[in-house]
Write a protein that binds this DNA or RNA. Structure first.
Lengths: 342, 342
DNA sequence: ATGAAAGCGCTAACAG
DNA sequence: CTGTTAGCGCTTTCAT
């Protein structure tokens, strides 16, 4: 409805120079005025602002970025190393992404999202960083690219990674203490009466490996056994794999630690198909505490990751690094949420 | 592990000019060589490429973008009009976003994600478009910004919107035929024995309003009744609201059409809490066919939206518009998926 | 407080 | 086929 009767002057003032001409000042002054610099006469500034508003002028961020050598954009990259088809629709990562978008927006940054399949190009991270389009980068998930990330960390400061923390690692990471989470899960399983445990998930992924290792710690200490049941994350494959695992281990396991709630929910369905009662025949603990954990039947006992805190930490640390501060990694504590499956 | 003993020449060749000097040619030639233009001597090109590779040179996309007046970036914006806190973690939108990322990547575009709260600034769309950072924009969800989008559509070509199609609208939209979907849902409910229907959802949102309208079409035609039960999308609020609705309508409804699967899953839990049997006491139909629809107990009968096709359509149409082609909107057919709740 | 001028790094005529 | 030149739109000294 705005300007319905104008002569079709399609945005006659596109550049700061156009605006300067209209205001009868120089481009430099317009730049200063719009950037809110102090050294501009109030009247001049007001005039410029008025004209800018009137014509809906927006400074070109590419040009500004080029000149100032910063873009106001943070890159967020999701490497899809193992298990290609999954992750980008993975509820956990997507929720994290949502919070990241919020946090970055709050700080005036835009978010450039990139999904990469590292196998296809070893160069994925340098390419993104070197593009000149982003001031910093957040990597969501180490996938199987731990070494690549380490390499890059040496030469590039403004990077923070969501993932697992390892002793002596050089890249700055934010993530849940997965090993502790694994311990918590196994403890719960055993407390609920299980003694022959199984871990459902892909231990190739470093975070899952840590969860499994934590569970092994406890199993060893408490005289329980634990086996790994390799399972992909994508629901279509996972379904069959879980069914097969359940058939193969029938009667020989009484507690399952699923690497994620998604897997746990799938597992619950399969368990029902097998006529196994949860938690009476088999106890089950998930990981993440996604919304679905409340909605399964029975509701899922799980290990909670604080996604909002994670996103907050990622952005906070990145901003500090952007400012040149050195930063430690941030390891968040997992938290047991007891519902009805264990 | 790469160059662990080098003299710290931190990327000595940052610009095309550096590279040109090393190769003993002019910057212009380097530009042409790297851009794969035909008019470069093969040997020269190879030499340039070799040096570029050796030094890990990446052309600055801001500079290139500024000069060519195109950025290779597509903006994706999610307006959070009604129901602020929700959407960005909404499974449906996030899945769509994932597919969009894939599609755009396939076509060599980057994706800039922006989450906006239109109430807070009326200018959200123009600001994004005018930033000079993006070649085109995909709007995910009309939210309550239909008019704003219409306004912009008149003056800006490369925009495609995910949402509801209305007779005579000016912006190019891709979306499911929500009204038809609503009809399908109501038909199923009635076929399953329901006669006093209820619609669970926020009819302020135009897409949901269309779903409700479709259900009304059928109810009216088949001698059934239908009432709207306003419900927010965010799980925390929805839970209470659904419980309240169920209490208030106890015994007076026998079929529920939930605006989304997420709502339906929540509703299923509440129904169980009320001791209502599904589908015997109350039939339930969802919308979307998200993964959760298979995992509820009993599994959810729902109306499927083809998210992958949606993403494909959005990108395809946007690319055409970018090429100057005029385009029609794309309305996708919903599809009934019968499981066990109706 | 403002103007003039010099680029940021790259591309696209235009010459040769 | 390649070099030269002139900017893209903005910011920032350096003068004034």
């Amino acid at each position: 409805m705005a300007n319905s009767d104008e002569t079709p002057v399609r945005r006659p003032v596109r550049t700061i120079t156009d605006l300067a001409r209209l205001a009868g000042v120089s481009p430099g002054t317009v730049s200063r005025a719009l950037a809110g610099k102090s050294l501009v006469n109030t009247k001049t500034r007001e005039k410029i602002e008025a004209i800018a508003r009137e014509h809906g002028f927006r400074p070109n961020q590419m040009a500004s970025g080029l000149r100032r050598r910063k873009t106001g954009v943070i890159g967020v990259v999701i490497p899809l190393g193992h298990d290609t088809r999954q992750q980008i629709s993975d509820t956990f990562f997507m929720t994290l992404l949502g919070f990241l978008a919020d946090e970055l927006t709050r700080h005036g940054y835009d978010l450039m999202l990139r999904r990469v399949v590292p196998g296809a190009d070893a160069d994925w991270l340098d390419r993104f960083i070197g593009s000149g389009m982003i001031d910093g980068v957040i990597v969501i998930g180490q996938s199987d690219q731990y070494d690549r990330i380490e390499d890059v960390a040496d030469g590039y400061g403004p990077m923070v990674v969501w993932g697992n923390h390892t002793e002596g690692q050089r890249h700055c990471v934010v993530g849940t203490d997965n090993r502790l989470g694994g311990r918590i899960a196994a403890e719960r399983l055993i407390a609920a009466g299980a003694i022959r445990l199984a871990f459902l998930g892909d231990t190739t992924a470093i975070e899952f490996a840590a969860r499994f290792a934590g569970a092994q710690d406890i199993a060893g200490r408490m005289g329980a056994s634990i086996i790994a049941l390799p399972t992909h994350l994508s629901p279509d494959r996972a379904n069959e794999e879980i069914a097969a695992h359940l058939a193969a281990t029938a009667g020989r396991i009484d507690g399952i630690f699923a690497a994620t709630d998604t897997l746990a929910a799938l597992c619950l369905t399969e368990l029902r198909n097998c006529g196994l009662a949860v938690p009476d025949d088999i106890r089950l603990v998930g990981f993440d505490d996604l919304p679905i954990a409340r909605q399964t039947v029975p509701p899922l006992t799980t290990v909670r990751q604080d996604i909002a805190a994670g996103a907050h930490g990622l952005v906070d640390l990145l901003l500090r690094r952007l400012a040149g501060e050195p930063t430690e990694s941030l390891v968040l504590p997992p938290q047991l949420v007891v519902r009805q499956t264990a």
